[in-house]
């Protein structure tokens, strides 16, 4: 799977699992922040994203300190998955 395909798939998982109404994968800027601004996600969504990574890619965050840069955008999530997927 290429990086572009993974980004597309992650966007689809986010829309589906977080029930992002009226949003298509094309509406999500892969480099925009996921939390606060951008999609405006919150801490409950962060827990849902952890589950998306683990269930679909077998990726577990090794420690909570690395969560902030990894969860910054769809692109940073995809890069982390690429490096750590099983």
């Amino acid at each position: 799977m290429t990086m572009e395909q993974l980004i597309q798939e992650l966007k689809e998982h986010l829309i589906e699992e977080l029930n992002l109404e009226d949003i298509t994968p094309e509406d999500i800027d892969a480099e925009a922040p996921l939390f606060g601004e951008g999609l405006g996600l919150d801490s409950i969504d962060a827990l849902e994203i952890i589950l998306i990574l683990e269930k679909n890619y077998g990726v577990r965050l090794a420690n909570s300190a690395e969560a902030k840069p990894v969860f910054y955008s769809v692109k940073t999530l995809a890069e982390y998955v690429m490096q750590n997927r099983k």
Partner: peptide, 9 residues
């Protein structure tokens, strides 16, 4: 394991 928080809440 791996339980979604939203339906629980």
């Amino acid at each position: 394991q791996l339980l979604n928080p939203t339906p629980f809440i």
